[in-house]
Each structure stands twice: as structure tokens, then as C-alpha cells.
């Protein structure tokens, strides 16, 4: 797999909150979703990836280039921040005219096409648009930059449901065009389920891990038992909702134990992604 981004021992302390040290690789051809509670450090990590926030320590490379020493990599990275500053008086057309000349691969046809799909009024001032419309314009601008890496910080938080669905398909199509990668910080379960290949979970400034989606799903399991459990603690157990319902984060260990002790399972099933994330963020 070709690497798009390498993050090595990157660390940043602001006041008394430290993000990192973070080690993370982003592969071309994949979508990585950054998950974590508010204040977990996702946005700070993203801003360090854009060299907007400067790390105290560590190394950050895009396409093999140290982002501290060069500005060229910016051509190949499009970024959508959570909120855009300073553009309230500019219209969609202005923003297009402002950005397009700086991206050598700017795709005007895609831009016009996406503008039509999302029904964006390019003559309206950014500050006069609804939050959802602003996000639509931002994502359309970001996609049309036609870069190798797209970094999105909660891009769909204010969008209506049909637009979110449309965007999902557009992102899928966008990924097909070339060897590319998307990093998306999101709280939307649908984004994670339908788009993510890798899930990076952050908590209190640290990366808890990077998991392939299926790998994560198969780690956890829910068991229902025919008889009440009498055993204090079962290997792999992370939660017990009553004496007949147990959740494990180590299926192999739990299965072996249950078999050995001849405990009858009524049923078992995998957990939903959001349940798994919740458990992980609780440290289980």
C-alpha cells in the first residue's frame, strides 16, 4: 500500500492539554475516519496535518514531504474546516475565483456539476447562507480541488438527510478517480458505516488505535444465556446487563471459556459500530 501521510510521534501541548504523541499512517486508496468525543483532539490533529497548528515535537509528512519545510504539498491537500472564517462577504463565485487558480488540478466541470446537484446559489454571499448550505459549498469547493488527500472536519454536521446521502455517493465516486485518500472526522454513524475503511479512535489527546472496520466489529460480541450466569467474571467480559446478557471484547477467549464450562448460549451477535465505539471510548 502506498502511503499518503505519515505522522510520527507528533505532539502538541496547549495550556494543560496534550495531544499526542501520535503515530499514524494514512494509505492511499482508503478512507480513514477519526472518531472521538468532543475535545478528544481530532481537530487539533487535523490542523497539525494542515500545518495550521505547529507541533511541539514529531514529524509530519504528506507524500514523503515534511510539511514544515515546504509549502508545495498544499496543492495536493484539500481541507474543509468545521467553520470557515473571514469569507462572509464573498459569494460562491468569488470563492471559486479565489481558490481555483491555486490548484493545478482544479476540476471546473466537477464543480459546476456538484453545484447543480446541491442546488447552490453561487451569487449568494457566504455569510447569508444557512449553515447547511455553507457546508455544501465548502465540500463542493474542496472536492473540485481534485487533490490526492481530502481532509474533512465534520463536513456534514448541518446538512439535510438527502444531501448527506448524495454526498456519500459523491465521495465514493471521488475516491474512484485516482489513487486518493480521505481523512474524515465525524460523529455521523452513517459516515463511519458506509465510508470508513479504517477507524482511528481518539480519546483525551491520544490515539487509542487504528482498526480496519471489520477487525473492530469481530472483536466484540453479545451473548444471551439460557440460564443465569453464576460466574463472577468471564474472560473478555466488559459488560453484563443482567445475569443472562454479557458483552465481550475478546470473542476467542470468551468462547473457549464458555465451552470449557459448558455454559449454554441462547444466542450471540456482533455489536453495532456505535456500540463498539462507545465501549472503546469508555476504555473497555
Amino acid at each position: 500500500m502506498k502511503l499518503c501521510t505519515q505522522i510520527e510521534r507528533v505532539e502538541k501541548t496547549v495550556d494543560d492539554f496534550t495531544v499526542g504523541p501520535i503515530d499514524l499512517d494514512i494509505e492511499l486508496g482508503t478512507i480513514t475516519s477519526l472518531i472521538g468525543n468532543n475535545g478528544a483532539g481530532k481537530s487539533t490533529l487535523i490542523k497539525m496535518m494542515m500545518n495550521l497548528v505547529k507541533p511541539d515535537n514529531g514529524l509530519l509528512l504528506h507524500f514523503g514531504t515534511n510539511i514544515k519545510t515546504s509549502e508545495h504539498w498544499k496543492q495536493d491537500v484539500a481541507y474543509q474546516p468545521q467553520s470557515v472564517l473571514g469569507c462572509d462577504l464573498l459569494t460562491g463565485n468569488h470563492l471559486r475565483d479565489l481558490m481555483a487558480p491555486w490548484y493545478k488540478n482544479w476540476d471546473q466541470e466537477m464543480f459546476m456539476n456538484l453545484v447543480r446537484i446541491f442546488e447552490i446559489d453561487l451569487n449568494k454571499r457566504f455569510g447569508k447562507m444557512s449553515k447547511g448550505m455553507q457546508q455544501k459549498l465548502n465540500i463542493v469547493l474542496a472536492l473540485s480541488k481534485n487533490t490526492k488527500l481530502l481532509i474533512l472536519d465534520e463536513p456534514t454536521a448541518n446538512m439535510d438527510i438527502p444531501s448527506k446521502q448524495k454526498l456519500m455517493n459523491i465521495l465514493v465516486g471521488w475516491m474512484e478517480r485516482d489513487e486518493r485518500a480521505i481523512v474524515i472526522a465525524t460523529h455521523q454513524v452513517d459516515d463511519i458505516k458506509k465510508l470508513a475503511d479504517y477507524i482511528v479512535i481518539m480519546n483525551e489527546g491520544k490515539v487509542l488505535g487504528k482498526y480496519e472496520k471489520e477487525e473492530l466489529v469481530y472483536r466484540y460480541k453479545r451473548y444471551w444465556f439460557e440460564d443465569g450466569l453464576e460466574i463472577e467474571k468471564i474472560p473478555g467480559e466488559i459488560d453484563r446487563l443482567n445475569d443472562r446478557l454479557l458483552i465481550s471484547n475478546n470473542v476467542d477467549q470468551t468462547d473457549t471459556f464458555l465451552k470449557k464450562n459448558e455454559i449454554k448460549i441462547m444466542q450471540s451477535e456482533v455489536l453495532e459500530v456505535e456500540e463498539i465505539i462507545t465501549y472503546m471510548l469508555m476504555g473497555r
Binding site: 494542515m50 479565489l98 481558490m99 491555486w102
Partner: peptide
Amino acid sequence: EYQYQKLSDNMWAQPFTVFLNQLPIPR
């Protein structure tokens, strides 16, 4: 909109300049 202003607790800047900083425009 284009004045130097308070952006957060201890950050003052001209917001449009901050915005341009995200684009591949040479400093």
C-alpha cells in the same frame, strides 16, 4: 468583517488572512 478582531479567548487576527493560510497560496 475585515477588521483585526478577537477570534477566540487569546487569539486576535484578521479572519480573512487566517482563511487564506489554509490554501496553497505562498505566504
